[in-house]
Amino acid sequence: MAETLLKIEGIVKRFGGLVALNNVGLSINKGEIYGLIGPNGAGKTTLFNVLTGLYMPDEGTFTFAGKDLFRAKPHVVVGTGIARTFQNIRLFAEMTALENVMVGRHIRTKAGGLGAILRNKGTMDEERAIEAKARELLEYVGISSVADERARNLSYGHQRRLEIARALATEPTLLALDEPAAGMNPRETSDLKDLMAKIRNDGVTILLIEHDVKLMMGLCDRIAVLDYGKKIAEGVPEMVRNDPKVIEAYLGVAHA
């Protein structure tokens, strides 16, 4: 049996009267690429927000790498090893690409106010290491040529990659990507696919939301389907694709 990295059970998240997540449970194994699909408004992003501590779930359990993360603060979640990107890119727009990634190193470094003021050797060494690691990550995602550009000025594809680099800077064991291919052309999408495969090969588990079914089928080890806040299917891509409930959820939306 594969080793379970993340496990949630019975997660409920309500917004006033709306039940955005209704009793959702799933488990992600170490080293896999786990896909999450579902029509718009199904609750995928909400689940991401719950998993990364941005939203407080109302009910359920949530463990990750053996630790209880139910209602944990975002920085605790990141410290435990979950990093994410956002569906509507949220870079620090006025910072350079390099600085964005350097912010990602925050949780893995520790220089405080006093160190910053005194500039002792430990602090300066750490600062250099932060920059070196950030440059390395820009290289890794293939955008080192724009290291000193402001994030705002980067092309859409580069911004998506920069968000991934920034998330990787936190040294995650699980990388959660919310529609990373949205708005990309086929070439960019295929490059992104290669990047995700590379990240997985380097030992990072991936949780992926994407609409591009072809991409998902080719890339994911397992896929879960959300509809109206409920998980309606889960399994290997082949099985999910032929599940009548999934077909209905998608067709129902497409032809409504």
Binding site: K73, H75, R90, L91
Partner: peptide, 13 residues
């Protein structure tokens, strides 16, 4: 610039 992104990057707000 963005407190939500900052939190999601592990900064203890």
């Amino acid at each position: 610039e963005d407190d939500i992104a900052a939190a999601a990057m592990g900064i203890n707000i």
